[in-house]
Write a protein that binds this DNA or RNA. Structure first.
Lengths: 168, 168
DNA sequence: TTGTCTGCAAACACTTTGCACTTTT
DNA sequence: AAAAGTGCAAAGTGTTTGCAGACAA
């Protein structure tokens, strides 16, 4: 049977396309690649922004080509994509927000509480800090999530006009 | 009118007790200190662990002295306590978890995905890292949240017996 | 053909809200 | 007495699930 780990071309680049990886993951557990699942994976793969389930659902519906998918199917498929390692899920203001994970380097976020924009950043120091802290507590780290909330440049300037600002 | 900021005794220590601060906050906006609100604030203040709304509700109900409070009142009061700066709220696995904020130094968490335990830690370096990153993006930081998930010492040892491990 | 999917509607967990009655100030 | 609070039941979110018909392998 084929294995994704057999290849290793350089740094973060991965051997399989997200679609291939998904197919492999699904096949491995006897799940099928249906029209809906394919449409969802393709659509998500085509864009690199953060998004939530309802957004995706709406976009799929407005797409002429693929006939879209129902809400349950969208939610089910997003979960499968997270399990497959294609997407990473985070919870913001009560709803799940997804971002690409497969083939992307580890990173964290700046979250603008005024316009809800997520800005990515990576920090090698943070990883080291994380490992050091974990070691101190004899804790085995599996992952982490840092969200720095505040006001982004855009909102800082137009802040004077309309009252912005929300919870942290 | 009285102001909490008039005092400033030393480092992290605060002048008013949580109860006093809450009372001041409420008075300032014409809200009353009812039996229920008092019971909730007292109960929460008496313990320093992390907790969620349902837990608190159950504890209040099982407490003989105060007759407890209804679910809506518990939720309403928790929100008020967060607004008053007494509690900090974070969302974990779908529900809100609260911890003391007033008079406590900034800290972050290690989260055991096996037993759901939260372990606190503080890191001055993290604050600096945060500010440096924010500065790079001309972002005005208002707060941050770092959660390192993994397996705690206890679960690491008893891990062999029953299969643990969950999502990040 | 067989077993997995889909979509619908209903169920869910957590949290908030409308409203009549109660309580604090 | 006046204003704000409480509790109940109901409404809301966002997300999941049972099930009968639809479809991929």
């Amino acid at each position: 049977m084929a294995s994704a780990a057999d290849f290793s071309l350089g740094t973060v680049r991965t051997a399989l396309t997200p679609q291939e990886r998904f197919a492999e993951f699904m096949q491995a557990r006897g799940k099928r690649i249906t029209r809906q699942r394919q449409a969802i994976v393709d659509h998500v793969t085509a864009r690199h922004e953060h998004f939530d389930a309802e957004q995706l659902l709406a976009e799929l519906r407005s797409t002429p080509a693929d006939a879209g998918a129902s809400r349950p199917t969208v939610y089910r498929t997003l979960n499968e994509m997270v399990e497959a390692g294609l997407l990473k899920k985070m919870v913001l203001d009560g709803r799940a927000v997804y971002e690409h994970d497969y083939g992307y380097p580890q990173h964290d976020h700046l979250y603008c509480t005024s316009c809800q924009q997520l800005i990515e950043f990576s920090s090698e120091e943070l990883i080291q800090l994380r490992n050091a802290v974990a070691a101190t507590h004899q804790f085995r780290p599996q992952g982490h999530r840092l969200i720095i909330s505040g006001i982004c440049v855009n909102c800082r300037s137009k802040r004077s006009t309309s009252r912005q600002q929300d919870r942290v």
